[in-house]
Simulated assay, not measured.
Amino acid sequence: MKNAIVMSALAITMSLSSCGIFQKESKTDAASSEVITGKKWKLIELNGKPVADKINGKEPFLKLDDNDKRYSASGGCNGIGGSFTLSANNRINFSQGMSTMMACQDMSVEQGLGAVFTAADNYTIKDGILSLNKARMAPLAKFKEVKEVASSKEQALNGTWELDYISGPRIAFDGLYPNRKPTITFDTAAKKANGNSSCNNYNTTIKINGGNLNFGAVATTKMACKGTGESVYFKTLETITNYDIKDNTLHLIMGDIVVMRFHKK
């Protein structure tokens, strides 16, 4: 009888210990999941071999944009891009889209990186290194996060600006915006902008690359607005390709033509 009780107690203890082990492993697995989007990753190893800092004078890299689920990359020659999907257990899949078609002296890294995007089905992160893998085989490629520092020009874009000129419409500026001038507030770290169109509040995403600037789709409140000022404002935002700041004046530019001018509030 005593032996039966002892055996039963041991079985319960082992069962509880086993549960504890599995719970710990589960927590560890969950903790290993790390955000990989919204960062720039520098290619440092390809198929087990180290990759030079620059290939054909360019840094090989990978970026994953969580907003539109698109990736951009370079093996040191052409731009590579397409869509990607993330799922449970660190699963990842790439779908290659269009790329540029330049011929470069060293195409081996680019070709190898293209093959990685075709084959990879999962990723891991350890000690700040992102690995793209196929099943449980050795990593196909390894990347190191690049801490990007915003330029002084990009930092100067932050804050709130008020429109005082817009190109195009035949109606005078004060006629377009008789009661309230449009505003825009930039948050370059979050890659977002918001403001008021003179009628509705709005928000949008931004993409900045040096002096280049592009706005994403605009979401607005739904008040009815008089006149055409709001529609002119949003249509002009869609055309912006770059920007320039002088003192407290912001120029938003289409090609090489200033189409919007703001002053810092």
Rank of each mutant, 00 (worst) to 15 (best):
L62W: 07
N93V: 09
I36Y: 06
L86C: 06
K126C: 00
F61C: 04
D106M: 11
I129H: 03
T118W: 00
Q105G: 02
N67S: 11
S108N: 10
G75F: 09
D68M: 02
G79P: 00
M98F: 10
K42M: 12
L46Y: 08
T37G: 02
S131D: 03
Y71V: 05
T37K: 08
E45F: 01
Q105W: 00
L86P: 02
L64A: 05
I80L: 15
D121G: 05
P50E: 09
A120S: 14
M98I: 07
A31N: 12
D121F: 05
S131P: 04
G114V: 04
K63F: 10
L132T: 08
A52W: 00
A73S: 15
S72N: 10
P50A: 08
Q105N: 13
I36F: 06
I125E: 08
S108C: 01
L86T: 07
D53R: 06
G97L: 07
Q111R: 13
S95L: 11
Q96W: 00
N90K: 15
D53C: 00
F94T: 09
M98P: 01
T124D: 13
G81D: 08
W41K: 09
G81I: 02
D53S: 14
A115F: 02
R70G: 01
N90W: 00
V109T: 15
